[in-house]
């Protein structure tokens, strides 16, 4: 059996990895939805939000079908085995998919808070669209993006349903704080469950508190409603 420390450390590591995985595609999706109007944008927005409203086990099952031998990303289709299922990679994928909607929604608000006139000003000063994005949009939305990252990290820390379907609950291999707490409670190991509960509350509170602070300072920076 892994120690409490090992379980907590693995969970933090996987959640951090999931946040990192989500960052680039999440930013691209959020920017697209914040700035562009195109055919199918509402469908894309809804699809992005879907994991937030579906039962997490349903998302886990969908991913399981996707990575199964006969799935679209399975051994038969690709010609080689990605060795995702019931591995730490499955934990990261499940956490990423489940935290993506929260990241995109927060990042979209952050991008929408950037005055587009400041962006077009950059173009009139000779910057390309890409340079404007890096030198104007990203710095002005940086605190909002940091808050979005923390929020997705917090969501990944607490992920349970999709993870248990796609990665299982294998101690020392795919067990997270959430699944370990479930196992401890199921087996009547109340002292361990209580310890895990305490760690989850502390880590979760610190993360959400930091997210709140960043969100408020972001609004203040861009002159939003909280700017005194």
């Amino acid at each position: 059996m892994p120690s409490l420390f090992e379980t907590v450390f693995s969970t933090l590591l996987w959640a951090a990895l999931a946040s990192a995985v989500v960052f680039v595609p999440g930013c691209a999706l959020a920017y697209l939805l914040a700035r562009k109007r195109f055919w199918g944008c509402y469908a894309l927005s809804s699809l992005t939000t879907l994991p937030l409203v579906l039962p997490p086990t349903a998302v886990g099952y969908l991913l399981l079908r996707l990575f199964a031998s006969d799935g679209l990303l399975g051994k038969d289709a690709l010609g080689f085995d990605l060795e995702i299922l019931f591995s730490w990679k499955a934990v990261v994928i499940a956490c990423s998919v489940m935290s993506l909607p929260l990241f995109v929604r927060s990042a979209r608000v952050a991008f929408e808070g950037v005055d587009t006139r400041l962006e077009s000003m950059g173009k009139s000063l000779g910057l390309s669209s890409w340079q404007v994005f890096l030198r104007v949009t990203v710095p002005l939305s940086s605190r909002g993006l940091a808050a979005a990252t923390l929020l997705s990290f917090a969501r990944a820390l607490g992920e349970f349903g999709a993870t248990i379907v796609l990665a299982g609950n294998i101690p020392g291999r795919t067990q997270t704080m959430a699944t370990a707490l479930f196992s401890a409670q199921q087996s009547g190991n109340d002292p361990l469950a209580s310890k895990l509960l305490l760690v989850a509350v502390v880590v979760g509170f610190v993360t959400v508190y930091a997210t709140e602070r960043l969100s408020r300072s972001h609004l203040s920076k861009i002159g939003g409603p909280l700017d005194g």
């Binding site: 006139r117 077009s120 000003m121 009139s124 000779g126 910057l127 002005l140 920076k221 002159g223």
Partner: peptide, 20 residues
């Protein structure tokens, strides 16, 4: 031609300085 290709120095009424 896009704004960045025209080479104009635009000074808007509200200045639009970068707050960061």
């Amino acid at each position: 031609q896009s704004a960045e290709q025209r080479g104009v120095g635009y000074v808007p009424q509200d200045h639009r300085l970068y707050p960061h």
